[in-house]
Design a protein around this nucleic acid. Structure first.
Lengths: 200, 200
DNA sequence: CAGCACTGGTACTGATCGGTAACATCTGCT
DNA sequence: AGCAGATGTTACCGATCAGTACCAGTGCTG
């Protein structure tokens, strides 16, 4: 019965499609999408190229699924943050700031995986780029909406400022790793910008 | 005498090394470093692969020279801005803002070529990445120095804020092309931040 | 003229990569 | 047991890419 899960080595506890996607996420993010071949992904997923191609018709399809999964997860994280504090926009802002702090302080940060994917794929206009662009636009629109509900003046301008600071920080953290550098000051800037709903 | 320059078709007016570097700059920026092969560069430079390899021992050397040239040019542009207004830090700030506006409004913007190169090459730690990192650190240090000389309070914090906004804008302009979107508001934010040397 | 340095062109190697075919194996289900 | 579907394994194809060998043309200089 449940022997099936144990007879096979631990890898089979999770189906191959998930293993492939997991391996692709790791390798794509660490080494870049173009730099990783399908053989490497299959090997890292403890499977082979054929199984990969049976689940994803081509590398482009896999790339698209990878980008889509990242965007979906980011959307879900946002929804969770919002849902955790219903009808309390100020608390939602605070929770989002905590989430940002967690992201920025995460070691091994190599920037936004979606942004990196867009850079990797924008040359030969890959369909996955549209997913990234659409996600970034959703993100900005959600910030505007959140800041408007929280009662800030000029929510559009504020959202753009926060958005650019965040994007710039994730990009710059790749050069300035440590607590020195502009990225580390991001939280201070964001908290100052969002400290009071009424600002000039 | 000068017949040599005319006998050859117009391409020979500029030596092959310059043509190769020029072609590499265009293709690397538009399509990505990894996505462009040396054959394509040689063809775009109206020469062949052999001449390319006689001037640059390998593609990695060419990449390094490409990144170095970008960094050198950016350094030179900064020096020119500073030198154009000697002993007048406020005017230097204003001139730099004009330069930023010019960069941001330039069509066909595909983000900072150095940042894109770093994303492309950071996977397999390419020596050129260090050039990018060093340049970004110089850039931040120069902003701090400029703002300190201009009499702003907290020049480090201000420089980091300006730096992140600028980097984020160049990254985001790839998704939000037009005058809508966060990138377009960059100049407004920067001018507000730098409007008065004495700010909270 | 002779020699030399630089350039262009062609063709090649060896490796890698995306993708496929054919066959063997294993699993779950009846 | 026995079947069907999913998975693993191996070998292969065609294309591309970085890098090289070899030869031919050109212009300069002694």
């Amino acid at each position: 019965m449940n022997e099936k899960s144990i007879s096979r080595s631990a890898k089979s506890a999770v189906p191959p499609r998930k293993r492939i996607m997991s391996a692709a996420r790791d390798l794509f993010y660490r080494l870049g999408i173009r730099a990783v071949g399908v053989d490497a992904i299959a090997e890292a997923a403890a499977t082979n190229k054929m199984t990969l191609y049976r689940h994803f018709g081509s590398k482009d399809v896999l790339i698209e699924a990878y980008v889509q999964e990242l965007a979906d997860e980011a959307d879900a994280r946002w929804e969770a943050i919002i849902a955790a504090h219903p009808d309390d926009a100020r608390a939602q802002v605070k929770a989002w700031l905590d989430h940002v702090e967690q992201v920025v302080n995460c070691s091994g940060e190599r920037g936004c995986a979606l942004a990196n994917a867009a850079v990797d794929l924008r040359g030969p206009d890959h369909p996955a780029v549209h997913i990234v662009d659409a996600y970034k636009m959703r993100k900005r629109a959600r910030l505007i909406d959140l800041f408007a509900r929280a009662g800030y003046e000029n929510p559009e301008v504020l959202a753009d400022e926060v958005f650019l600071l965040f994007e710039g920080a994730r990009l710059s953290l790749q050069c300035y790793g440590g607590p020195e550098g502009p990225g580390a000051r991001l939280m201070m800037m964001l908290r100052r910008l969002l400290s009071d709903p009424s600002r000039p």
